[in-house]
Simulated scan of single mutants.
Amino acid sequence: MLSWDHRPTLSTMGRERAWVEINHSHLTHNIQAIQALLAPGTDLMAVVKADAYGHGAVTIAQTALQAGATWLGVATIPEGIELREAGIQAPILLLGATNTVEQVRAIAHWQLQPTLCTEKQALIFAEVMDSATQPLPVHINVDTGMSRLGVAWQQALPLAQQIQRSPHLHLASLYSHFATADDSDLQTLHCQRDRFQQVIQTLGDHGIVPPMLHLANSAGTLVESSLHYNLVRVGLAIYGLYPAPHFRDSIALKPVLQVKARVTQVKTLPPHTGVSYGHRFVTQRETRLAVVGIGYADGVPRLLSNRMNVLLRGQFVPQIGAITMDQLMLDVTDLAEVHEGDVVTLLGHDQDASISADDWADTLGTISWEILCGFKHRLPRLSLSSPATATANPLTLS
């Protein structure tokens, strides 16, 4: 067995191949900029589902709470458990559906707050909680036009009444979710808001006044203050991206995530040489090729093959050939010098140039949410100015 005085660890190897950098100062800036749009008494929920949109749920949640967020939103029970195991005590709303006895017990044990959409759900929760010493806070999701989870807005009253009658459940909030808040045409948004208002009025007429109301996602938060109610649920915007281009003039956001990798080999190819699987790129001149240690298994979509640039020394460099599982290739012929170990920026800033998740999304005909969520866990998340503790090293593994 080999023995070294200094054994390699994840922290020392984190930037050897490829990694994601998370700028917590930018996250703080974004949250505070959004809060400046809110009326006094309106809280902010940081949506940290899907590993905080690929940014790293625990450290993002810690920073978001330090910056002023008061709630966290997750999609699944394991996502909530991860935050609790990290010592996070803030209220956590479970946005996804739960229907089994085992799920209810886990929710109660980990002090998560579930979403209820049906009377059957409410019955299951009430039966499981019948021996609890305190009622479980629950939230009603009303479907006002999203046609996803939620009780139909015309049928919200019976569900609210059932929760109200149960000594084991406490109605903590009423909420809904916009389907088209990122659209410049606000007709559907206003229809959903009006339906939400009608549900509030109907419940109030029957003596049910939810202590908290929330409707706005990132786009809804930026559209108009009348949509803010007691709480806004913000995901994409806290990560520094805009739900749609027309929001860019309403708030200054800073991208939190950068994706970087290293050149692992440089070689020279003669003209008429095929590159990568299928030879989807063939050199037309003597070409200097740089191999980079990142691929589609890390979250770089294979459909970007021959359709993307990266940044190297502040210059845009074309990617060539099919992107492979662990590697991709660049044409660096026009750069003066390129060496093994040089850092390539796939998303982020390098000198005066930048590439964003929106750029990839536009090329692929998709949305930036999907791009961010695609970066896999084998890419270490490296925190710029770690949220948990001060450190002499400004770049720490998160």
Rank of each mutant, 00 (worst) to 15 (best):
H279T: 14
V58F: 04
H109Q: 14
P114A: 15
R302T: 08
H26W: 12
Q66Y: 13
S147Y: 14
P91T: 13
R280M: 09
Q155M: 13
E85I: 04
V232L: 00
K260R: 11
Y229C: 00
D205Q: 14
E127H: 12
L397V: 13
W19V: 10
W110V: 12
V338Q: 13
T100D: 09
S147Q: 10
G365D: 02
S276G: 06
G293A: 05
E370N: 11
D205A: 10
N23R: 07
E79W: 07
A36G: 14
W71I: 01
D326N: 08
R165Q: 15
T221Q: 00
S276M: 07
A252L: 11
Q161D: 12
T391H: 12
Q103D: 10
L215C: 01
T118M: 05
L159D: 10
R307S: 03
G145L: 02
T118K: 09
L189W: 00
L213M: 13
Y296K: 02
E286K: 15
R381C: 02
H139P: 01
T264V: 05
L186I: 03
Y296S: 01
L38H: 02
G321E: 05
V47S: 10
A57S: 11
R313V: 14
T389E: 10
A46V: 03
A75Q: 12
L136T: 10
Q89K: 07
V310R: 11
I355P: 00
L395F: 09
V223H: 02
G295E: 08
E340H: 09
Y53H: 06
G56I: 07
D342E: 04
F178G: 00
R15V: 09
C373I: 03
D5M: 09
L346A: 03
L149K: 13
Q284C: 11
T273R: 15
L241S: 00
D352R: 14
E286D: 15
D183V: 02
G341S: 03
I60E: 01
W110G: 03
V151I: 04
H55Y: 05
P114E: 15
A36F: 10
N141E: 14
L231Q: 01
Q111F: 11
Q155K: 12
T100K: 15
T366V: 07
E340Q: 13
R15N: 15
S276Q: 08
G293N: 10
A106V: 15
L384F: 08
H55N: 05
I88A: 02
A361R: 13
A216H: 00
L213T: 02
L169C: 15
V300Q: 09
T70E: 12
L384G: 02
M212Y: 12
Q187V: 12
L231E: 00
R105P: 04
G235S: 03
